[in-house]
Design a protein around this nucleic acid. Structure first.
Length: 497
RNA sequence: GCCCCCAUAGUCUAGCGGCUAGGACGCUGCCCUUUCAAGGCGGAAGCUGGAGUUCGAUUCUCCAUGGGGGCACCA
């Protein structure tokens, strides 16, 4: 039997790094085992589910390149692929109803008429008595005629599982090992809400069965829920249960569960900041999993074939991992440096547009000029969103002089003499190349008895307005003779000295 | 309060009874260098504590401590 796994997000928020990592592990496992990756939308939270969230999750998965084989949004008109759908739980209410009826007929489920207030006091009383705050099952033992009367009266009610009181629920978890929970500690949890909509517990178990899911790979915040879902399988008499793999959580720098207050957590924010999708994948893969030699970087060719080949659920970490923004930034830099020049420009372009550096399209000349400029800064680039700030001065007609550059360089004695002198030399050149500009500057320094820096720095500032920037002579070559001479000539009057 | 999970440097991790405890990020020293980076070569930094088991525990067992998760008509 080929493995079938699923990612089952609830559309109540954006795709965050934890969800993305869960999706990634499912995806990696399915690709490695030549299995099937299913996307199922768990939209049974009527109050919080939104189309916007669903959209964001789909967009996030697509951006990351985590493609699913079965589920919604797969045909050209956005329809389902797969015979075991529909893949939205709210479109499967009749399925859940049938399954509830089946349990009801076997007295394995029962209606509960307790109000939320009743349950609240029940819980408080249990807490005070230092007992587990679980349902006291008063409706489970309701007399048949009273139950029927209240049902006939349409009293609001939920349906609960009449779970066994004896024994224990056991299952094996690929990551955590053998698990055992005493049945007595569990309770008659809610299967179907007053609204008639199933709970996550009920719908999820049924769907995993009906969609023939073989491996449930999810965050270990679900570990405590698993015995309930196993009880459901038992109640239905389903012998074949999925294999569970509960992967550890991702925490923020303070060790608590990753949340908004830790900064960027949604995949969309990482995209905006200029992280590459393949970096998200590579980094997230390492957050809770590793190879025996702690390999850091993986060949991303052929849809990350190397990661797919090497990934093993068995090697997942049991403990939570803290998300390290510094490390993922480092990795982003590594990936950016490995990009071809053409690819780099394509990747940066949306950020140039976003920053107003250029329009969606540009003349071939401008595009080429930006291309040349960008190449000079590739090794310095960490986040794509930083690219505009690195090369914008190549484009601006008026050089904006940084206060620091003016202070440390242009205010030094002779700075403008150097600029004028070098400019005169440059004017003699046919065109500016990295080689001849460097030769000119070095010769100039020797001739005037100056240190190289006393020449290089003023020249740099005069054309860029900054003390930091690309390799000076390559920068001059890219800017071209005309632009360089114009800037050098204009420096004196433009500088706010 | 009850149940469950977890524990190697600041962080991600390798380790599966005997290792100078390995790698990566970050930090740091030197080199390279027109700046900023990148790169090269070094460095500091770790097995939560206590009992066992064993000739020998980072590794196995138990306890303690610490961290996390669950205990909803949310998923």
């Amino acid at each position: 039997m080929t493995p079938r796994v699923r990612f089952a997000p609830s559309p109540t928020g954006f795709l965050h790094v934890g969800g993305a990592r869960t999706a990634l592990y499912n995806w990696l496992f399915s690709r490695k085992t030549k299995g099937t990756f299913i996307l199922r939308i768990e939209d049974t939270d009527e109050a919080r589910s939104t189309d916007e969230s669903m959209r964001a999750i789909i967009d996030g998965l697509r951006w990351l390149g985590l493609d699913w084989d079965e589920g919604p949004f797969l045909t050209s008109d956005g329809g389902d692929v797969g015979k075991l759908g529909p893949y939205f739980q709210m479109k499967r209410l009749d399925v859940y109803r049938q399954h509830l009826d089946q349990l009801l007929a076997q007295n394995k489920a029962y209606p509960c008429f307790c109000s939320k207030e009743d349950l609240e006091t029940m819980r408080n009383r249990a807490m005070l008595a230092k007992r587990a705050p679980k349902y006291d099952e008063r409706c489970r033992v309701l007399a048949a005629d009273e139950r029927k009367a209240r049902l006939d009266r349409h009293d609001p009610h939920v349906y609960r599982l009449a779970r066994p009181h004896e024994g224990a629920v056991e299952f094996d978890d690929i990551v955590k090992g053998h698990m055992r929970f005493e049945a007595d500690l569990l309770d008659d949890f809610v299967l179907v809400k007053t609204s008639g909509v199933p709970t996550f517990m009920f719908a999820g178990a049924i769907d995993d069965r009906l969609m023939e899911v073989t491996h449930v790979i999810r965050g270990d915040d679900h570990l405590s829920n698993t015995p309930r879902q196993v009880q459901l399988f038992d109640a239905f008499g389903w012998k074949e249960k999925p294999i569970f793999a509960h992967i550890s959580m991702i925490h923020g720098p303070d060790g608590s569960r990753l949340s908004k207050r830790h900064g960027a957590t949604s995949i969309e924010e990482f995209r905006k900041a200029g992280f590459l999708p393949e970096v998200m994948l590579n980094y997230l893969a390492l957050l809770g999993w590793s190879t025996s030699d702690s390999q850091q970087l993986f060949d991303r060719k052929d849809k990350f074939h190397e990661l797919v080949e090497k990934f093993e659920l068995e090697r997942c970490q049991k403990s939570a991992a803290i998300f390290d923004i510094e490390k993922i930034k480092w990795m982003n830099g590594v990936y950016i440096r490995s990009l071809s020049k053409d690819e780099l420009l394509d990747r940066c372009w949306p950020y140039f547009v976003e920053a107003g550096l250029t329009g969606q399209t540009a003349t071939p000349e401008l595009r080429n000029y930006m291309h040349q400029a960008l190449m000079l800064e590739q090794e310095k680039l960490v986040l794509l969103a930083d690219a505009p700030g690195l090369i914008d001065f190549f484009l601006s007609e008026d050089v904006k002089f940084e206060a620091e550059a003016v202070e440390k360089v242009l205010k030094k004695d002779g700075a403008f003499n150097v600029i004028a002198g070098v400019a005169a030399e440059f004017a003699q050149l046919e065109n500016l190349t990295a080689d001849n500009t460097e030769r000119v500057c070095r010769d100039f320094a020797v001739a005037k008895g100056l240190k190289n820096g006393q020449v290089f720095h003023p020249v740099r500032v005069s054309v860029s307005g900054r003390t930091r920037g690309p390799s000076l002579f390559h920068m001059l070559e890219v800017m071209g003779k005309e632009r360089v001479l114009a800037r050098m000539a204009a420096a004196r009057e433009r500088v706010p000295v």
